[in-house]
Computed example of a mutant assay.
Amino acid sequence: MKKTILGLVFLISQGISAQLYVGVQSGIGNIQHDVSGVATANRLGAALKVGYIYSLTSHIGVGTGLEFSQYKQEASFMNYSGKLSSFEVDPSTSAFQYEVTTSGYNEKQTLHALQIPVFFQYKTNINKGIDFNFRAGAKYFLPLKYKIDAKAESVKGTAYYPDVNLFIDDLPQYGFGSQTNYAATGEYDTKGVFMSMFELGFTFDMGAKNSLYAAMFLENGYGSILDQKDDKSFIGYNPTSVSDRKANGLYSKDKDAKLRLVGFGVTLGWNFK
């Protein structure tokens, strides 16, 4: 990355022609996971883009920029009712097995991120005022916030203390029991990853200094964006009440869960020559 930035600075200092672009990107933004029993739906992605392309020759250029992206999707159990267990510690430091059973559980996920692309562009004229464009390169994907909005028709948390063979399912003042119309927010811990990027499209001259860019894009992430330290219950344990239980999210049950980004769709941009 440092070498690329230094190379771009050198190109600018040499007075090589630059083209500014702004644009939007929209399509399918799939956050793929390997967590068993979890289904996702309504996978959407969008981004705002700004950057420069520096011409090395009449056909070849190198570009970079900054993008603000948003991914949206929903996650739920594959079955209407879901049950997961985890190990917790109560205020007296006694360990127990915490089991959460839900009906109609659903979490809406919103991921905001910054992306820094570095790519090569090949272009060639195919007709008067129309150029063919192909871009290929990489992006650094830096998550800013991965928010969870969770809801369920009912939630029940029970405890089993194996040391004393004790099962508790109705002690609300200690966090065990049922709750209806559950709603809570949470956030996944994340880290940055690299992505490959490809675009295939056309540029249409709209005047001496401006042109319209339209393309299809494909992006593929490498490595997981999750950065979890411990296994957690997807709905957290509250030691003083059956309400106000934190939404940790379905991916939190496995600290080694892998989340990989894949996106494809349409890019529209405006170039300033």
Rank of each mutant, 00 (worst) to 15 (best):
Val118Ala: 14
Gly157Thr: 01
Ser154Ile: 05
Asn133Ser: 14
Tyr140Lys: 14
Val118Leu: 13
Asn127Cys: 11
Tyr161Glu: 00
Arg135Trp: 01
Arg135Asn: 13
Lys151Asn: 13
Ile116Glu: 11
Ala152Thr: 03
Tyr161His: 05
Gly137Ile: 02
Ser154Met: 08
Leu142Pro: 00
Phe132Cys: 09
Phe120Gly: 09
Val118Ile: 12
Pro143Gln: 00
Ser154Trp: 11
Ala159Thr: 02
Phe141Ala: 08
Ile130Lys: 01
Lys151Pro: 02
Tyr160Phe: 11
Lys139Tyr: 04
Thr158Gln: 00
Phe120Trp: 06
Lys139Ile: 07
Val118Glu: 03
Ala159Gln: 01
Glu153Gly: 15
Arg135Ser: 12
Pro117His: 07
Lys123Asn: 13
Tyr146Met: 06
Lys128Arg: 13
Tyr160Thr: 04
Phe134Ser: 15
Ile130Tyr: 04
Pro162Glu: 01
Pro117Ile: 00
Gln115Gly: 05
Tyr160Ile: 07
Tyr161Lys: 04
Asp131Arg: 04
Ala150Gln: 07
Ala150Tyr: 08
Lys139Asn: 08
Gly129Arg: 04
Val155Gln: 10
Glu153Ala: 15
Phe134Gly: 14
Lys139Gly: 08
Ala136Val: 03
Ala150Pro: 04
Gln115Met: 14
Leu142Val: 10
Thr158Ser: 04
Leu142Lys: 13
Tyr122Gly: 09
Arg135Asp: 10
Thr158Cys: 01
Phe119Glu: 07
Gln115Leu: 13
Glu153Ile: 12
Pro162Ala: 11
Asn125Met: 09
Tyr146Ser: 11
Ile130Asp: 02
Pro143Glu: 00
Phe120Arg: 01
Ala150Phe: 09
Ile130Pro: 03
Asn127Gly: 13
Thr124Glu: 10
Tyr140Met: 15
Ile148Trp: 07
Asp149Tyr: 06
Tyr122Asn: 03
Ile116Arg: 14
Leu142Cys: 10
Lys139Leu: 10
Tyr146Gly: 09
Thr158Pro: 00
Gly137Val: 09
Pro117Trp: 02
